[in-house]
Design a protein around this nucleic acid. Sequence first.
DNA 1: GGTATGACTGTAT
DNA 2: GATACAGCCATAC
Length: 112
Amino acid sequence: MLTLKEKEEFKQSVYDVVRLIPYGRATSYGAIAKAVGLPHLSRMVGKFMSQCDPSDNIPAHRVVNSQGILSAGEVFGIPGQMKNLLESEGVLVINNRIQHWKKVFWDPINEI
DNA sequence: GGTATGACTGTAT
DNA sequence: GATACAGCCATAC
């Protein structure tokens, strides 16, 4: 069980990492969780994204699952929004899946 | 306190 | 590639 303080640190770390994702790149929930030192909390990363502070500017559309699939779906408000944002950054998305995932993938561990 | 659920992941079929 | 299943952990009821 995480203390309130640890939870807050975890959340902030996650937000920090997400904000570090370069334009036109993307990463996975698991990679982020690993980067902040909690490799088994990938589900919590997703939860924080869905509950992220509206005041914080989090590019959550650059975070997908380990296979480059946009599992967020309609959580972004309207279906296709996530796909739109990614494609506007030059990331090709077909059928909710990022193309050339290996090239688009950005590993936080190599950048922090 | 048990059960179901979720923006997950890895392995197996 | 698509499905199924088993771990994983916080939350909601």
